[in-house]
Amino acid sequence: MKSSDATMSIGEIATRFGLATHVLRHWEATGLLNPARAGSRRRYGPEDLCRVAVILRAKEAGLSLGAIREMLTASAPEERQAILRRQREELTARIARTQAALDLIECALDCGHDDLARCPHFLAVVAERVSGTGSTRSI
């Protein structure tokens, strides 16, 4: 068998990428992977190794499994670009929410009051939220 034709078992590929075998089975069930079979056993070749690496990289970029499947099955570059644009918008919104949370915590730590519950800024934001007039303002 040539090295380019070498295959790996599900346990070997899971170990190689630091994954549990059930993750690879789930990815197969959702259409992300389609390993060859030798009898009833899955056999992963070089293309599958690359595909797992692509899936992991896409997950690191914040893509959902559905978006990854869309990317991998898209027939045109424009489709992949559209998916990436949507992902960028989602990440931008998530970053804004996370920044607002960090701002809240930093303000609470730096405001000079020993208790957030007595901070005038925090109490004003809470009052605005209760009244419905300032539900997106942070302290």
Rank of each mutant, 00 (worst) to 15 (best):
T7K: 12
G62Q: 03
Y44R: 08
D103K: 04
G132F: 06
R69Y: 04
I55A: 13
R86Q: 14
S135W: 00
A76P: 00
A29Y: 00
A61D: 01
R42H: 15
S40F: 00
S138W: 04
Q99H: 07
R80L: 04
A101W: 01
M8G: 01
T98L: 14
R129I: 15
L63Q: 02
G132C: 11
E128M: 08
T30M: 02
D114Y: 02
R51M: 06
C119T: 09
M71I: 06
E78N: 08
S135R: 10
R42M: 12
A58V: 01
T15C: 05
A76V: 10
R37S: 07
K2I: 01
C50Y: 05
R37Y: 05
F122Q: 15
P46Y: 03
A53E: 11
E90I: 09
I105F: 07
I105M: 09
E128D: 15
M71R: 05
L49N: 10
R37H: 13
I55G: 13
T133A: 04
A108M: 04
R137L: 04
E106T: 09
L84E: 02
A124S: 14
D48C: 03
D110G: 03
R94K: 12
E79M: 03
I95T: 04
A67T: 03
H113D: 04
L72G: 14
I83K: 03
M71H: 03
A74N: 08
C50M: 07
E70H: 11
L32H: 05
L123T: 09
K2W: 04
A14W: 08
A74Y: 03
R94V: 01
G66F: 03
L32D: 12
R80C: 11
P35F: 10
A93H: 11
I10P: 12
D103C: 02
G11E: 12
P35N: 11
F122W: 14
A101T: 10
I139G: 03
H121L: 15
D5V: 02
D110H: 07
L65P: 07
A117C: 06
T30R: 08
S64W: 09
A61E: 05
R41D: 04
I68K: 13
L116T: 14
V126G: 03
V52S: 14
A29W: 00
I55F: 07
E79V: 09
P35A: 10
I10H: 15
L33T: 07
L32N: 10
V52Y: 12
I55M: 08
V23H: 05
L24I: 15
A6L: 10
T21L: 01
G18E: 02
I68C: 12
E128F: 00
R16D: 06
E78P: 02
Y44V: 02
I83W: 00
R118Y: 01
H121P: 06
R129T: 11
D114A: 11
L102R: 11
K2F: 01
C119H: 06
G66K: 12
E89S: 12
A76Y: 02
E47D: 15
L123W: 01
L72R: 06
K2L: 14
A74P: 09
T92N: 05
A6K: 15
Q81T: 11
A127H: 04
G132W: 06
V54L: 06
R118G: 02
M1N: 10
L49T: 11
A127S: 12
G62F: 04
E60Q: 14
R42Y: 15
E79Y: 00
V130D: 10
